[in-house]
Design a binder for these strands. Structure first.
Lengths: 217, 217
DNA sequence: TCCCGATGTATCGGCCCGATACATCGTCAC
DNA sequence: GTGACGATGTATCGGGCCGATACATCGGGA
């Protein structure tokens, strides 16, 4: 999961570890706590070993990363061509872990780079997951309420409330996805859903502006 | 964290692993996914090694656990005297992990066996934690909104909403704790209609159980 | 009869976390 | 000047927890 997040961030710009973590914290700060260095650096090592990312010493001439001032031995990571392919694959691949809090948060963060069919699949999968949780909570509150103490019950109620709220939120997003037309790419392949090797990875993937009609008062 | 949960459940009644997991899933099903066996059994082994719990073969005569029918080699775990002490310690001990989703959920589940001072400390700590998260999200939404795409922004908004909601929930619980009320259904009536609030609230901490419920049907 | 789903115990590889160590840079007080 | 301090930066280690997997029994229905 973290692999997808790192690849996605490095596709925006090359970064070193410290900055990567900050970016991770702000972008995934909703359904996910800040990532630990004890996770980040081993993962970077793994990605580098797999060939998805490359490593480059920071030189004085490189001003790719403006906010940083130090010019010591920082290691700047950069996504490779294979890494971009890998990222595209991971974007469309969905497993059970796609629908838990962390996985959903990461995927959602990159929705502007995800095709509409996958977006809908993920939103509906997440909705299903949260609905199952909601039903479980309703079951407990209806059937085993007398077996639980007042505090536990209150916790279940709060959890149920959060589930219902998220389902409504997801419904709204799904409705918007279905109604809002995206230019160009949504035209081909009505059924689709078959993960053919994503083409057009070579030429700067036009991100297909979502315009998800997410207004607020 | 799981240690506290297991000890707490085993203090209600002896159980074997499978049942323990089910109980864990329903009671902590709100802020926590179901526990994995790959976690449960090693933890039980660890607790047994530490002397907090004991192991006993299931015999045909024991009908402690009615819903189970099989009488094969199930291993029933039972809390020891040291385990009870350990549980009492863990109940009042609070660290940073007490205030994350899982830790808070576990502690909250056992609030009916926690003294009021600790309850308040945990509720306020959790509130502080969620408030920090909330402030972080507000910061991002106010300062870096133009740097993020529409989907990421929507995720942040949803996260912010959830934070604000939980803070309000915690405020309500804290208020009730201070006035000596059990967390029952404040939504069904005006708060002012409650009878004279228990004055106590002093430095002494009478256990003040809302509903002990330590027996099993 | 025979298979299937629920019950039940257990292990393994691997992800991820918190704690910790170490080093440099800019800045501000003294 | 200089020394303390916080932010920046890289890295490892032990351990908790997870999903996948294997294996075994039991009750009940095809």
């Amino acid at each position: 999961m973290l692999e997808l997040a790192i690849l996605g961030l490095l596709q925006e710009a090359p970064m070193h570890g410290y900055e990567l973590r900050k970016e991770l914290a702000t972008k995934l700060g909703t359904l996910r706590a800040a990532i630990s260095y004890g996770t980040l650096y081993p993962t970077l090592k793994r990605l580098k070993l797999a060939g998805w990312i490359g490593e480059a010493e920071m030189t004085e001439t490189s001003d790719i990363i403006p906010p940083m001032t130090s010019k010591r031995g920082r290691v700047v990571y950069k996504i490779t061509a294979e890494g971009k392919e890998r990222f595209a694959d991971l974007l469309t691949q969905t497993g059970p872990e796609t629908y838990d809090d962390t996985g959903f948060g990461v995927h959602f963060t990159f929705f502007s780079r995800t095709d509409r069919a996958t977006r809908l699949r993920i939103l509906e999968g997440r909705r299903r997951r949260v609905e199952e949780r909601r039903e479980g909570l309703r079951e407990v509150l209806a059937r085993a309420a007398d077996r639980l103490d007042a505090y536990t019950l209150e916790l279940q109620r709060h959890g149920l409330d959060a589930c219902e709220r998220e389902v409504r939120w997801l419904e709204e997003l799904i409705t918007n996805e279905r109604s809002g037309q995206t230019p160009g790419r949504s035209r081909f392949g009505p059924a689709g859903a078959q993960p053919a090797a994503t083409p057009a990875a070579g030429s700067e993937t036009p991100p297909e502006q979502p315009r998800p009609h997410l207004d607020r008062p």
